[in-house]
Amino acid sequence: MVLDNIEKLLEKYENGETILKEEQQLKNYFSQETVAPHLEMYKPMFQYFLGNQKEQFTKDVPLKNKKIFNYKWISVAAVAVLMLGFYFGQQDNCNDLGTYCEPEEALNEVSKQLAMISGHFNKGTQAVSYLGEVDKGTATLGYLNEIENSTSIIFKK
């Protein structure tokens, strides 16, 4: 009877369906000296689990002292960076990164670029001028649809 119960518990254990109380029964059974011969292969596994259960961590965990960070120095560094930025930022940087100092020079350059874009745009519109003929063809098809609708009304089935 006990052996039959142990075999059922082992089957449940292998399927992962046991509760802690049932697992403890299995551990107690396999910790005995006498175990059924066909269940001998489970004995080392459950003895290992019992041994692992008794292990404890005995080493000391060193706790490090947290260093207190002085935030006053961050504000001093930020003020220094801002002062240097204002000092070096006052220089005349008109020609940096392709900018123009004189408004007339910038206007001439913009008008030249816009004229170039306009020329390319006009070439593109000439290339697609045939689409107007397609529109005329679709309008003709619209008239054919109207004729078909009227004939379907006349010859109603």
Rank of each mutant, 00 (worst) to 15 (best):
residue 148 E to V: 11
residue 61 V to Y: 09
residue 134 V to W: 15
residue 147 I to P: 05
residue 69 F to R: 03
residue 56 Q to P: 00
residue 110 V to R: 07
residue 125 T to S: 04
residue 81 V to A: 15
residue 34 T to R: 11
residue 19 I to C: 09
residue 65 N to A: 13
residue 90 Q to H: 10
residue 157 K to W: 15
residue 137 G to S: 07
residue 52 N to G: 10
residue 128 V to E: 02
residue 142 G to N: 06
residue 2 V to D: 03
residue 38 H to M: 04
residue 118 S to F: 10
residue 30 F to W: 01
residue 107 L to G: 01
residue 40 E to R: 08
residue 47 Q to Y: 01
residue 11 E to F: 10
residue 41 M to N: 06
residue 11 E to W: 04
residue 112 K to T: 13
residue 37 P to D: 08
residue 71 Y to S: 14
residue 101 C to H: 04
residue 24 Q to E: 14
residue 115 A to G: 03
residue 125 T to G: 00
residue 19 I to H: 13
residue 19 I to N: 11
residue 100 Y to M: 02
residue 92 D to S: 09
residue 63 L to Y: 07
residue 36 A to F: 08
residue 95 N to C: 08
residue 8 K to R: 13
residue 103 P to R: 09
residue 42 Y to E: 00
residue 13 Y to E: 05
residue 66 K to S: 10
residue 118 S to T: 12
residue 59 K to Q: 11
residue 38 H to Q: 08
residue 14 E to Q: 12
residue 16 G to N: 02
residue 32 Q to S: 12
residue 142 G to P: 00
residue 137 G to R: 15
residue 94 C to Q: 06
residue 6 I to Y: 02
residue 129 S to V: 10
residue 12 K to R: 10
residue 43 K to P: 00
residue 123 K to S: 15
residue 7 E to H: 08
residue 69 F to Q: 04
residue 84 L to P: 01
residue 3 L to V: 04
residue 126 Q to E: 15
residue 53 Q to D: 07
residue 146 E to A: 13
residue 68 I to Q: 08
residue 47 Q to D: 04
residue 96 D to M: 05
residue 73 W to Q: 11
residue 74 I to P: 00
residue 33 E to N: 13
residue 88 F to P: 09
residue 87 Y to K: 15
residue 133 E to Q: 09
residue 78 A to I: 10
residue 66 K to P: 06
residue 72 K to A: 06
residue 98 G to E: 01
residue 23 E to P: 03
residue 6 I to N: 01
residue 127 A to K: 11
residue 148 E to L: 08
residue 34 T to Q: 14
residue 86 F to N: 05
residue 148 E to K: 09
residue 51 G to C: 07
residue 64 K to T: 10
residue 35 V to L: 00
residue 65 N to P: 00
residue 50 L to D: 02
residue 120 H to V: 13
residue 51 G to E: 10
residue 134 V to F: 14
residue 55 E to P: 02
residue 124 G to F: 03
residue 145 N to L: 12
residue 116 M to G: 12
residue 150 S to T: 15
residue 41 M to H: 07
residue 92 D to K: 03
residue 42 Y to T: 01
residue 153 I to M: 07
residue 16 G to Q: 01
residue 105 E to L: 04
residue 49 F to H: 02
residue 147 I to L: 15
residue 156 K to Y: 06
residue 151 T to A: 14
residue 49 F to P: 00
residue 59 K to D: 15
residue 92 D to P: 08
residue 31 S to P: 04
residue 51 G to T: 12
residue 40 E to P: 00
residue 139 A to C: 05
residue 9 L to W: 03
residue 7 E to V: 07
residue 72 K to L: 09
residue 135 D to Y: 06
residue 83 M to W: 12
residue 125 T to C: 03
residue 122 N to V: 14
residue 45 M to W: 14
residue 107 L to M: 13
